[in-house]
């Protein structure tokens, strides 16, 4: 259990660092802090923590998608992960309009 928590912590930390420097491939250039500040809830509310993880997942998925070659066998898996995070964001009714260009880009890839 301790290892699981430590691993999760490292994973979260890595995502945190990643979100501080979004790749240049993503069209959305905002930090997660800035995105959270644009939500309907206060940034310090507990939902903000969940939203932060979801936004981390979205950035992670987008970075992997943009970096992957079109023939990359893992590309489809990255798209599925992104769409799952996207669905979670929608479930939390997050304002993700800043990702719209990226969402459109991923949608075209699946058509």
């Amino acid at each position: 259990m301790k290892n699981i928590i430590l691993g999760y912590f490292v994973f979260i930390c890595s995502l945190s660092f990643a979100q501080q420097e979004p790749t240049s491939f993503t069209k959305c250039q905002l930090s997660i802090n800035d995105i959270l500040l644009q939500q309907s809830f206060d940034i310090d509310e507990p939902i903000s923590e969940d939203a932060m993880y979801i936004l981390n997942d979205m950035y992670e998925g987008l970075n992997l998608i943009y970096k992957s070659d079109s023939n990359d066998p893992n590309l489809q898996k990255h798209i599925i992960s992104f769409n799952e995070a996207l669905q979670k964001a929608k479930d939390l009714n997050l304002n993700i309009s800043m990702f719209q260009e990226d969402i459109d880009y991923v949608s075209k890839m699946t058509q």
Partner: peptide, 10 residues
């Protein structure tokens, strides 16, 4: 440097 995730009752 970024948000301090503190909240009363949390």
């Amino acid at each position: 440097g970024n948000n301090i995730l503190w909240n009363p009752n949390q």
